[in-house]
Amino acid sequence: MLKKILGGLAAVLLILVGVIAMQPSEYTVQRTATMPVPKDIAFALVNDFHRWNDWSPWAKLDPDIKTTFGGAQAGVGATYAWVGNEKVGEGKMTILESKPDELVRLELEFFKPMAGVSETRISFKAVEGGTEVVWAMSGANNFVGKAMCLVMDMDQLIGKDFEAGLANLKTVGQAEATKRAEAEAARVAEEKAAAEKATAEAAAAAGAQGQPAVARPTP
């Protein structure tokens, strides 16, 4: 009887291993969002790891997370490493390619809770209404990854985080765009006030000398 039970268990395990082995050997997760901001604003928030905590979907999952920045200040060679709780784990990101206002390509290394390496691409394209941002990640499924596919694949696991991150990026980007517009409006107003002041002073000086003032156009 015991041999039959053990034999049955062995058969079940072999079937399970076979089913796991048949799962996809690679995965891809991709999400897209359109943001009412210029490309350069969205790009800058991604190209500089120091800005990631402003919009990253994982930033607030562990208030005690330890982060380390290395390499370049931004762009190719910049690194971002983190050690956190079970929700964020431990890993490192490195920017491998950076095309201004077009693309940021990263290597994403996970150390804990499950080791793995993925390539992440965040691209930017001007469209009607602002900028289309595409966040995509791809990698290889090892045996553990394939086993997880039986319960939840990477698209289900990571996709919702990408959606949250893009929503956060949109909010932060809009705030940056508003600041830029306000700064530009203030600059124009300052230049206009300076021009009007110069015109008034010229008129006053001409009047004091009994000469007609030379009109200066006000932008």
Rank of each mutant, 00 (worst) to 15 (best):
F124V: 13
E119R: 11
M22A: 15
E132T: 02
A115C: 06
V76E: 11
E90H: 07
G89R: 03
F143Q: 01
L106Q: 10
G75D: 07
V134L: 08
D54H: 14
D153N: 12
L108K: 01
P36A: 13
P113A: 04
E128S: 11
L61Q: 12
E128P: 07
D153C: 06
R121L: 13
K92H: 14
L150M: 12
G71K: 03
E107C: 03
L106W: 15
T120S: 13
K87A: 15
P36C: 04
I20W: 01
K60W: 10
N141E: 03
R31I: 00
G130D: 04
T68Y: 14
R31V: 05
D48Y: 01
E86F: 15
G129D: 06
E119G: 02
G18I: 07
V83Y: 00
G91M: 02
V83G: 06
V37D: 05
L45G: 05
E26R: 00
A21V: 09
T94L: 09
M152G: 02
T131I: 10
I95L: 13
G75P: 08
S138V: 03
W55A: 05
T67M: 12
R51N: 15
M22V: 14
L108T: 09
N47Y: 10
A33S: 14
K66S: 14
V127E: 11
K125L: 15
L108A: 06
L13Y: 08
I65R: 11
N85D: 09
M114C: 06
I15A: 15
V151P: 06
Y80R: 09
Y80V: 03
W52H: 14
Y27V: 05
M137S: 07
F69V: 01
N142L: 01
W135Q: 03
P38Y: 05
A33G: 03
A72H: 10
N142R: 00
M154N: 05
G84N: 09
A140S: 09
V133P: 08
G130V: 06
L16N: 08
G116T: 00
L61K: 13
K112P: 15
F143V: 01
E26D: 13
G77Y: 11
A140T: 04
L150C: 12
I95E: 02
L103N: 03
T34L: 06
K146F: 03
G70V: 06
I65H: 02
G91Q: 03
V37E: 04
L45N: 06
V144Q: 00
T67F: 11
D54E: 15
K99P: 01
P63A: 09
A115G: 09
T67D: 08
M22F: 12
F43E: 00
L16P: 05
T68E: 15
N141H: 05
Y80G: 03
L103W: 10
F111L: 14
M154Y: 11
A44G: 10
M154A: 12
D101A: 13
D153T: 04
P38N: 01
V144P: 00
I20H: 05
G71T: 04
L45A: 02
M35E: 03
E90V: 11
H50F: 10
V88S: 01
I41P: 00
A136D: 06
D40R: 05
V76N: 08
P36N: 10
D48G: 09
E102W: 09
G116M: 01
K66G: 09
G129R: 05
S138R: 03
A78F: 13
V29F: 11
L14A: 15
